[in-house]
Design a protein around this nucleic acid. Sequence first.
DNA 1: CCTTGACCTTCCAGTAGATGGAAGCCCTAT
DNA 2: ATAGGGCTTCCATCTACTGGAAGGTCAAGG
Lengths: 131, 131
Amino acid sequence: MNISAAAQLASLPPKTIRYYEDIDLVRPGRLDNGYRDYSESDVHRLRFLQRSRSLGFTIEECRLLLSLYDDDHRASADVKAIANAKILEVDRKIAELQGLKTTLSALARDCHGDDRPECPIMDDLAGHHEQ
Amino acid sequence: MNISAAAQLASLPPKTIRYYEDIDLVRPGRLDNGYRDYSESDVHRLRFLQRSRSLGFTIEECRLLLSLYDDDHRASADVKAIANAKILEVDRKIAELQGLKTTLSALARDCHGDDRPECPIMDDLAGHHEQ
DNA sequence: CCTTGACCTTCCAGTAGATGGAAGCCCTAT
DNA sequence: ATAGGGCTTCCATCTACTGGAAGGTCAAGG
């Protein structure tokens, strides 16, 4: 499959996909005419990248996550430890999004749609969980 | 409060906080000696920025969200519409994180901690929700 | 067969969002 | 008064793309 089909499936611009190849995150095959040729599994990687990047993971974090699947030489114990660490991070992000949603919902609820609300929501703006 | 105290409370580097001032996201006062002076409400803004940036919202999206609280001239109907749109986005992000967590949990579970798992999890890597 | 248009390629420049380091001022503490 | 750490500004660098130019490829139509 060519790059724009892959782009469609992965919800990523072709430019970004080429960039991911430059930095060795994905290694599509090439056709005789020089066109990149993406397999199903390449598209899976790309979708994974799209998802985790849009959720605030850095490229290097994504590379690490992908390496969990790639690296046959990595000890399983390492894989497990890294995966568990990332799960905690994901849980934290979910909690933060839920806090954000609470803030936004309060704002939407308090807006009658015709006048400016009193909104002391600013107090809540930053969430209340200490870290 | 000076910049490093604010940095501590907001979980942001001082450098980033100065940058956010450059691009007019936060406007701390100044002491006579030229030092920046952060109020509680400045720190709230910064925490909010830290939170939403780390969750994948762009600076311009953050600016929009903050403007919901700032702009006394914006119609309430607009605030409500924007807040509701962002709530949908937040819900989508939460769902994606839950998908990511499922993937990572499966990986951690299938790793016995001593040997390489069979892991056909690659199939699941990109999540299964079409967009 | 040849052109037109929509692909694809590489390369190089520019943007967004920070981040690092130098040079110098401020403050407290010995 | 001088050593330390914190603060300031400014400029360079980095990450993660994004845009555009210049040119090759391919399927469709005249």
